[in-house]
């Protein structure tokens, strides 16, 4: 095994490509080291990307924010601008692991772990966040929603790595929220989760919404029907019932040690409802 501190994205991409799949990128390491400990992975090369310029930075861009692949959750939470614009993304990211894990874990790592239960992914999908990918063929931008291919699988080509996430600008009266269900208050993997991002019209009704669910299918799902169910409404009971029904219809979870199909389906609807109400309150406060 070798450990390399990459100095540029080009170097990291080259090492990844050369390794033929035997290299792993190290950002926060909170998934990678656990997998190494259990013997699940034994990489030939570990490529630390945190020293690459820009990786540890949050920069304003076109009214939105670009977040480097090495930025830990805690740093995101300390950034007033991101917190104000995308509070749901920040709360998703801040729910990954403990305070200690927050000092290390990254949104990109959370995305690349390719778990349908990843906490930062549903809010990124709801936010229509875009991942910047660097690879042997240069750079490309891909919506976060299109990155996961299934549990443990990504739509990345050999030698490609994600170097940043872009959270776009948004209208003034807009906000988002993320909720997950876990059996404890902390330290668990989401049993079901929901992120809602919405924009309010002048009259206070919902002009546009995006709803994403986690842990209720092979990958995080953007639920168009759920968004349609609340658009044009003020989240009256009927709209919330329709939102819950649409979410539940979109669920295709599994039974496992963390929850049952029935439970996940039921709770996904409840979480979407509650997240929508929180997002609407947040948007409303931005008068």
């Amino acid at each position: 095994m070798q450990f390399v501190t990459a100095q540029s994205t080009a170097e990291a991409a080259r090492l990844l490509a050369e390794s033929g799949g035997a290299a792993r990128v190290l950002a926060g390491g909170t998934d990678l080291l656990v997998q190494m400990k259990s013997g699940m992975v034994e990489p030939a090369t570990i490529i630390d990307i945190k020293k690459i310029p820009g990786m540890m930075e949050i920069t304003e861009e076109d009214g939105g924010y670009r977040i480097g692949a090495g930025v830990p959750g805690q740093m995101l939470g300390e950034h007033a601008g991101v917190v104000a614009l995308w509070p749901g993304v920040v709360e998703g990211c801040e729910l990954i692991g403990s305070t200690q894990v927050q000092g290390r874990c990254t949104m990109v790592g959370n995305l690349c772990n390719a778990s349908p239960a990843a906490d930062s992914v549903p809010p990124m999908v709801a936010a229509n966040a875009v991942a910047r990918i660097e690879g042997p063929d240069g750079s490309r931008d891909v919506p976060v929603a299109d990155i996961p291919a299934g549990p443990g699988k990504l739509n990345l080509k050999p030698g490609e790595l994600i170097t940043s996430i872009f959270l776009p600008a948004r209208p003034k009266r807009a906000s988002d929220a993320y909720l997950r269900f876990i059996p404890r208050t902390e330290m668990d993997i989401a049993v079901a989760s929901a992120a809602v991002s919405l924009e309010l019209a002048e009259d206070g009704s919902i002009a546009h919404a995006r709803v994403a669910l986690g842990a209720v299918g092979p990958k995080v799902a953007l639920v168009e029907d759920a968004a349609r169910a609340i658009e044009g409404t003020t989240l009256d009971d009927a709209a919330l019932d329709a939102l819950m029904a649409a979410c539940r219809a979109a669920c295709s979870p599994i039974n496992d040690k963390r929850g049952t199909v029935e439970f996940r389906t039921q709770v996904a609807g409840v979480l979407a409802k509650r997240a929508a109400l929180i997002a609407k309150d947040r948007a409303g406060e931005k008068q």
Partner: peptide, 12 residues
């Protein structure tokens, strides 16, 4: 493991 063998944490 302590991830899924869920002992109470302080915030519980």
């Amino acid at each position: 493991g302590f991830l899924d063998y869920r002992v109470p944490v302080a915030s519980d």
